[in-house]
Amino acid sequence: MTTIPNLVGAGLIVIGAGLGIGKIGGSAMDAIARQPEASGKIQTAMLIAAALIEGIGFAAFFMGK
């Protein structure tokens, strides 16, 4: 059942997750710019963190849906 509160909740979750992933990506870019030789490690750490947030986002999104 898709009700308006559910949709609003889903939207909020997406905003939150988007902000979180955006921040991780931005920080990773900064870090890579500062230390290009560590880009591999930073990328891995970034993907892991982003994946965790994404996972929470998806879980909440589907529960709300």
């Binding site: 994946a51 965790l52 994404e54 996972g55 929470i56 998806f58 879980a59 999104f61 589907f62």
Partner: peptide, 13 residues
């Protein structure tokens, strides 16, 4: 248990 669950949902979603 959450780890494989999030793996499932991530790829699916």
């Amino acid at each position: 248990i959450i780890k494989p669950f999030s793996l499932t949902i991530r790829l699916y979603a």
